[in-house]
Design a protein around this nucleic acid. Structure first.
Length: 743
DNA sequence: AAGTGCCCGTTGTTC
DNA sequence: ACGGGCACTT
């Protein structure tokens, strides 16, 4: 057991071995927080204080859970970890609980419920607004969706919200009420419901609460600063008997307020758990002194915070390099060149030491970095954006599978009832929707009723009978078939395969490949012994960060996605007012402090070398604008910074695309954006394509999307199908295209 | 019912 | 600049 405590500093040691009663570990960035959790679990097992199944560890992402499991496996001999050690996110933990007990809540919900993701949720909100006759322009669906979620997380229901004469408020309440009704009819739960209903189970049924309290003798929660009120409530319910709770987090890294995270959960921990002990881990093992000094200086500007200064014994290291590029393209190009140069210098070192990350505030910024990487032939991994499970064909296939377990899943039915086209048009769908609404049932039930009554046109009746028969026959195949077989069956019998085959385009080929990938994923699930239920739950709960490829040496991602990760080399891009801090956070002190915490998170990802970049001009909504440097740049002591003179690679004319460090603010320039110089030279990779020089069938190479095929040419625009990425439309002259061959 | 053309909002971060 | 939604066409 001594090896478990080896190399831990006194605070870490205390955090590992203080096992009884509530414990709050305030762990600064890079202070070995994950290490403490891993060792604590190992210690509990090693000391015989708990068997694996008596421990629950909650992580922020599924990816973090997997990593933690691996590290525990390395530390604990197999004999000590017989039994299931549960490491999960709050959401996946709640799904487990609900799959077991949801029936007991009564009402419409059963254990076969479907999980609605944000996309399904958005569709439902739109449908509700439509049904209520509310104008989407006056009541933006996104705002309503957000409002519903926020209300739910405050513990509100449509009935607890006071009626209001404010039309917006009134619309929200009406939409909220209908939304809940429709969710129930579809036997569907959204992400918020997962937490809320699990809490309700524990609150309403003492035996369930007792069961869980008995089972989990030790509970550990990572990233505690980002828990929301339902999660706090769950935590309290799960720890009411023993209070063996270890919460680990850093108030300075609370960055999920928009998701209802409440920083007070960690600040008020000692009020929630009066017997709590507090341990502060203030030694940083990750970053150089320079990087840490910058991070400390920045975070000190937050007023609402408990003072805590991190210190490190690491070397001072290199100064932080700042670069101001002329525009986003040059910013990206600079970053990529610097990465290549850096990696060349790291050559003798193991690949892990040459890993780099490019961090940005918004997903939209990823594009220029992707293009730059492709241009320079630098392999990269992109986190976020469109993940595998968000692709249309994958969602279609999953929708079929969802229907097999829960035919009342309206979102799934709507998605595939006419995919492939089987003659169920808009008119038919409208009748179906209206009937479902008037009867207060799912579309599936409405369909069954209409079929019985012959209440539709002959063509629609035949089409829907065929669809119903398809789903039912697949349902009967469910029990015996392996998952991979089942997916194949769905694609074959639904006609999806045939549809793609008939299209015969490159795009269809790509979609087929993606579906083959899904079949492989199903086969892997088969090997793990998973059932369809688990397979679908996993698909609904995986985050984009979860499939981060370890092998890639360059990772592009938002700062939010980078939470918990570290890299020897880090670039923080787009340090401009309005972008970072984001314009929507600039006028509210609380939001601004959260932006600053986000910047703090970004800074502290870096181990050895840090770059901060700004684009002097940036296109926003298609319009090029001059930018101001981020106020956060001013918060870093100048002594820690250095001007980066420009790309270190040779072959570039001196001065080209380079600027001084602190962007010299020329007020005139700021106020009057220069018009784009006519015929500004584009980078060399963009082979100029004369409008009309492409025709349908041409195979082309796009700088970002790769190989594709022209499927339509109209009024100077090109529609190009990219395998697996869908059809994109481009302005013929502006698109970075090269022809591969003419058909 | 499916395909084409035009208008408008969008990009803030995610389990 | 781009995609979704809608109206209009076949």
């Amino acid at each position: 057991m001594s090896h478990l405590l080896e190399g831990l500093n006194p605070e870490q040691w205390a955090a590992v071995t203080t096992t009884e009663g509530p414990l709050l570990v305030i762990a600064g960035a890079g202070s070995g927080k994950t290490r403490v959790i891993v060792h604590r679990i190992a210690y509990l097992l090693d000391q015989g204080l708990a068997r694996p199944e008596q421990i629950l560890a909650v992580t922020f992402t599924n990816k973090a859970a997997l990593e933690m499991k691996e590290r525990i496996h390395q530390l604990v001999p197999p004999s000590r970890r017989r039994g299931e050690l549960l490491i999960a996110t709050f959401h996946s933990f709640c799904v487990r609980m609900l799959r077991r007990h949801l029936d007991r809540l009564g009402g419409a919900y059963t254990r076969d419920f479907t999980i609605y993701d944000a996309d399904d949720q958005g569709r439902l909100v739109k449908a509700c607004l439509k049904e209520l006759g509310l104008d989407e322009k006056l009541y933006p669906p996104r705002a309503i969706q957000y409002g519903i979620s926020a209300a739910k997380n405050r513990g509100e229901t449509p009935d607890t919200l006071p009626p209001s004469s404010d039309p917006k408020r009134d619309a929200l309440i009406k939409a909220f009420r209908l939304y809940e009704t429709r969710l129930a009819a579809a036997n569907a739960l959204d992400f918020d419901d997962l937490l809320l209903l699990a809490g309700r189970l524990l609150r309403r049924f003492q035996d369930i609460a007792d069961d869980y309290n008995d089972r989990f003798r030790y509970i550990l929660i990572d990233e505690y600063q980002d828990t929301n009120p339902p999660q706090l409530s769950l935590t309290r319910l799960l720890t009411q008997q023993r209070q063996n709770l270890c919460a680990v987090g850093d108030p300075d890294q609370s960055i999920y307020k928009f998701r209802a995270a409440d920083i007070r959960n960690i600040l008020d921990f000692e009020r929630h758990y009066p017997k709590a002990k507090l341990i502060v881990l203030a030694r940083n093992y990750r970053s150089t002194k320079t990087i840490l000094a910058a991070a400390n200086a920045v975070i000190q500007n937050n007023r609402a915070r408990r003072k805590k200064d991190l210190a490190t014994e690491n070397a001072a290291g290199e100064p932080i390099r700042c670069f101001v590029a002329a525009n986003a393209e040059e910013e990206a190009d600079f970053v990529v060149r610097e990465i290549i140069a850096w990696q060349r210098r790291q050559e003798p070192l193991p690949a892990a030491e040459a890993r780099a990350a490019v961090l940005y505030r918004t997903n939209a910024q990823s594009r220029s970095f992707e293009e730059a990487c492709r241009r320079r032939g630098l392999p990269y991994a992109l986190v976020g954006g469109f993940s595998f499970y968000e692709r249309a064909e994958i969602k279609d296939a999953l929708a079929y599978l969802r229907l097999l377990l829960n035919p009342h899943d309206d979102a799934a039915l709507e998605r595939v009832v006419n995919v492939p086209p089987r003659g169920v048009g808009k008119a038919t769908l409208d009748i179906l929707t209206a009937r479902a609404a008037s009867d207060g049932v799912s579309r599936w039930t409405a369909m069954t009723r209409l079929l019985e009554e012959n209440g539709l046109g002959a063509r629609a009746l035949t089409a829907l009978r065929g669809f119903a028969a398809l789903i039912e026959s697949l349902q009967s195949a469910l029990a015996g078939a392996k998952l991979a077989e089942l997916v194949r069956m769905v694609l074959a019998r639904s006609g999806y395969d045939a549809m793609l085959k008939q299209e015969g385009t490159l795009e269809a080929e790509g979609r087929k490949q993606n579906l083959d990938e899904l079949i492989s994923a199903a086969a892997e699930a088969d090997e793990r012994g998973e059932r369809l239920r688990e397979f679908l739950d996993r698909a609904a709960l995986v985050a984009d960060t979860d499939d981060l490829e370890e092998s890639a040496r360059v990772t592009l991602m938002t700062i939010h996605s980078a939470k918990g990760l570290e890299f020897p080399l880090v670039f923080i891009a787009g340090l401009e007012e309005g972008l970072f801090p984001h314009a929507r956070a600039a006028h509210d002190d609380e939001d601004l402090e959260e932006e600053r915490r986000l910047f703090y998170v970004a800074l502290t990802r870096a181990k050895r070398q840090l770059y901060l970049t700004q684009a002097e001009r940036r296109r926003v909504y298609g319009e090029e604008r001059l930018t101001d440097p981020s106020r956060f740049l001013d918060e870093i002591p100048e002594a820690l910074l250095t001007t980066q003179a420009g790309p270190t690679t040779a072959g570039r004319r001196a001065g080209e695309g380079m600027r001084a460090l602190q962007p010299t603010a020329n007020p005139d320039l700021r106020r009057f954006p220069k018009p784009k110089p006519a015929g500004a030279p584009r980078s060399s990779w963009s082979a100029p394509a004369a409008a009309g020089s492409f025709k349908v069938g041409d195979r082309v190479e796009h700088a970002t999307y790769g190989a594709g095929q022209v499927v339509r040419v109209a009024d100077g625009k090109l529609d190009i199908a990219f395998p697996g990425k869908g059809v994109k439309r481009f302005v013929a002259e502006a698109a970075p295209l090269t022809r591969i061959s003419r058909q």
